[in-house]
Amino acid sequence: MERTAASSVRLEPWSRSDLQLLRRANAPELMDHLGGPESEEQLIGRHGRYVALSADRTGRGRMFRIALPGEAEAVGTIGFWERTWKGQEVYETGWAVLAEFQGRGIASAATLAVAEQARAENKHRYLHAYPSVDNGASNGVCRKAGFQLIGACEIEYPPGHPMLTHDWRLDLHPER
């Protein structure tokens, strides 16, 4: 993929019709750094949370499917949502690009686009990402998208499953 193709990544709001995309993103190779694939029941629950988050207009966050020109189907997922981190309200982001579309700059372009969406909410100063320390590709996405590496930390994901991650932070409003 040429650089211009990655720059034409579109974020489209998550909808009820996106459950199949979530199932495709639940592949073992995509969930390896996140504790493994989820059960169908877990996926349906997560899909419901994504639909609700995308319908919410209070600035709590949004979920999106990642679309590319010329592709009939979405190529991945990305979003941002609120969390309390070290006593401060922040946004967190996470993404998944389907295996056949990886290595083309899509995740980095989508992360830049989702940062713009979070910035437009004008609610929280920071956007964090917590990729596993072993996930070189996702750590590279953070670096390319301009996030600052704060350090290693432990996160539970899924709940009850502690994992060692990097805490990456992007200042959404550096002028403040």
Score class of each variant (00 low, 15 high):
residue 2 E to A: 14
residue 100 E to I: 00
residue 15 S to A: 15
residue 29 E to R: 04
residue 92 E to M: 11
residue 53 L to I: 03
residue 102 Q to E: 04
residue 168 W to V: 03
residue 144 K to Q: 09
residue 48 G to S: 11
residue 1 M to L: 08
residue 35 G to N: 02
residue 150 I to L: 05
residue 147 F to V: 08
residue 170 L to I: 14
residue 95 W to S: 13
residue 40 E to H: 06
residue 170 L to P: 07
residue 173 H to K: 04
residue 111 T to R: 10
residue 64 F to P: 09
residue 95 W to A: 13
residue 56 D to T: 10
residue 156 E to D: 10
residue 166 H to S: 10
residue 42 Q to Y: 03
residue 84 T to N: 10
residue 127 L to Y: 13
residue 56 D to W: 04
residue 90 V to I: 13
residue 77 T to L: 15
residue 159 P to L: 08
residue 130 Y to A: 10
residue 29 E to H: 07
residue 13 P to T: 11
residue 149 L to P: 01
residue 49 R to W: 03
residue 57 R to N: 08
residue 141 V to T: 10
residue 152 A to N: 02
residue 42 Q to E: 15
residue 33 H to W: 09
residue 157 Y to E: 14
residue 160 G to S: 07
residue 152 A to S: 04
residue 17 S to G: 14
residue 71 E to L: 04
residue 69 P to E: 05
residue 131 P to L: 09
residue 78 I to H: 02
residue 29 E to K: 04
residue 90 V to K: 05
residue 136 G to P: 04
residue 23 R to W: 01
residue 54 S to W: 03
residue 66 I to W: 04
residue 109 A to Q: 09
residue 61 G to K: 12
residue 129 A to I: 02
residue 103 G to H: 12
residue 145 A to Y: 09
residue 126 Y to K: 05
residue 11 L to N: 08
residue 175 E to A: 12
residue 125 R to K: 01
residue 121 E to P: 01
residue 85 W to Y: 13
residue 77 T to E: 08
residue 158 P to L: 07
residue 25 A to P: 05
residue 38 E to V: 03
residue 65 R to H: 11
residue 51 V to Y: 01
residue 123 K to L: 13
residue 156 E to S: 03
residue 56 D to M: 08
residue 100 E to Y: 00
residue 49 R to T: 08
residue 142 C to M: 09
residue 148 Q to F: 11
residue 137 A to V: 13
residue 103 G to C: 11
residue 157 Y to V: 12
residue 11 L to T: 03
residue 85 W to D: 13
residue 67 A to S: 12
residue 96 A to S: 15
residue 97 V to G: 06
residue 2 E to D: 15
residue 121 E to M: 14
residue 139 N to R: 12
residue 171 D to Q: 02
residue 101 F to L: 07
residue 46 R to Y: 12
residue 117 Q to N: 00
residue 121 E to Y: 11
residue 51 V to F: 01
residue 9 V to R: 06
residue 173 H to Q: 07
residue 176 R to A: 14
residue 123 K to G: 02
residue 56 D to Y: 05
residue 84 T to I: 14
residue 174 P to Q: 03
residue 7 S to H: 12
residue 5 A to K: 10
residue 170 L to G: 09
residue 60 R to K: 05
residue 56 D to K: 05
residue 72 A to G: 11
residue 171 D to V: 03
residue 123 K to A: 06
residue 55 A to E: 15
residue 162 P to N: 02
residue 144 K to A: 13
residue 56 D to E: 15
residue 151 G to D: 02
residue 154 E to M: 05
residue 63 M to Q: 15
residue 116 E to T: 09
residue 133 V to S: 01
residue 32 D to N: 09
residue 96 A to C: 14
residue 141 V to L: 10
residue 122 N to K: 11
residue 89 E to K: 09
residue 102 Q to H: 02
residue 100 E to D: 01
residue 106 I to W: 01
residue 133 V to H: 00
residue 108 S to T: 14
